[in-house]
Design a protein around this nucleic acid. Structure first.
Lengths: 210, 210
DNA sequence: ATTTAGTGGATAGTTGCGCTATCGGATAGA
DNA sequence: TCTATCCGATAGCGCAACTATCCACTAAAT
């Protein structure tokens, strides 16, 4: 398949494909003569993965490059996991973090084996700090139930990874699962919020239904 | 308090504060004479809320304006909830959605009372579609356990809102909770992933500890 | 053998966003 | 009166993610 067809079947403009190649997200076509290259199923899969990470996962091009590099390398599964985790986490400077907020988060993760520099731990602590500053209330109960839910999710994630047959499939699941899992839980949370609202307050929450 | 002090105590540059005022996130100072305004605790609170939504919640300025407008209006709690939900959700065109993916998500939400146009439902369906396209596997089990976790979270959210004394506090909690809850669960999920990994594979997952 | 459509590679331009910087006229406070 | 500060308006900046052209070249159709 040549460029025009590649672009057409993938639905991605030619200029954008070239941009991804420049940004080293997508390898050049195979059997490249000076002015003609060949694209196959591998390239289509890769392009679909790229678009998923960018559009559904909301990653930046730079972040996408980082996880793809990890996938292409011979990195071990934990190494890929760590790259994926960092890529979806906003950078949080631990020095700007109120130790009390960190302690609050650590207390809801009691018994967990988590390293201090885990990006999720820092992100959660920042949320705790901001939430309590804005709402001026103790939200420890709220955090605790989130932690319970996080544990269920993490078990599901690991099971899903374990279910893959080989290392390659596992690493891809790590990346895609880490990135899309955040979006999935957010979406399901909104649906669940509507459900819980409507069961608790049967009359008041009808959503634009005459 | 005048502009210089307002900027200093909040840690936000003067030019940025003026920008927020232009963008109608922040009201002008009180008792404004032609060239002097007064800022008080109300303005500080509002600015802190704005920065939290922008920096921690990752909202755009436009999205922040929309939720603040809802907060300032006399909208009912469900109305504010709906604005908040839309603001944190990527717009998904239902026409581009594979009905099979929608059905998959609906099946894991069996028994839930959720309207078809719930933005979370559509977002989840898009994730289902993308994930299964990329991983070429049936992930219904994965989705189902996420739904279980989402239900726990939604109950916690609603309890937290119910705990607020008055409508004003409730609506603010709706907005802040909706926005920060997504970040919180993502963070805790990463921590839980490390925990579960390290308990399942005791040796292999040590995170840069010599 | 000669067109001709298509290609790779390079480079420049566009759009949108979140600020940031500067300016001019006015005024509060010493 | 004088100086520091303010408001309001406008313009500019830096980054990210494309998008659009151009050119030399070549595979393939005639």
């Amino acid at each position: 398949m040549r460029m025009a067809e590649f672009s057409h079947t993938s639905g991605v403009p030619v200029a954008t494909i070239k941009y991804y190649q420049r940004e080293r997200l997508l390898p050049a076509g195979q059997n490249a003569t000076p002015n003609q290259a060949d694209y196959g199923a591998t390239h289509l899969d890769r392009l679909r993965l790229i678009r998923t990470l960018l559009e559904v996962g909301g990653l930046s091009v730079a972040a996408t490059r980082r996880v793809l590099e990890a996938l292409d390398s011979d990195a071990t599964l934990p190494e890929v996991f760590e790259v994926a985790q960092h890529v979806v986490s906003a950078e949080v400077d631990p020095n700007l973090l109120d130790p009390a907020s960190l302690a609050r988060i650590d207390s809801v993760m009691a018994g967990w084996h988590v390293s201090p520099e885990n990006p999720g731990r820092l992100a959660a602590a920042r949320v705790a700090q901001s939430f309590e500053a804005v709402s001026q209330a103790d939200a420890r109960g709220w955090f605790g139930r989130y932690a319970e839910a996080a544990l269920i999710i993490a078990e599901a994630d690991l099971d899903e990874i374990d279910a893959r047959p080989d290392r390659e499939a596992k690493t891809e699941t790590v990346v895609v699962g880490t990135v899309l899992g955040d979006v999935l839980i957010s979406g399901l949370r909104r649906a669940a919020q509507e459900h819980v609202t409507s069961t608790r307050y049967p009359s008041s929450e009808s959503r634009h239904h005459p």
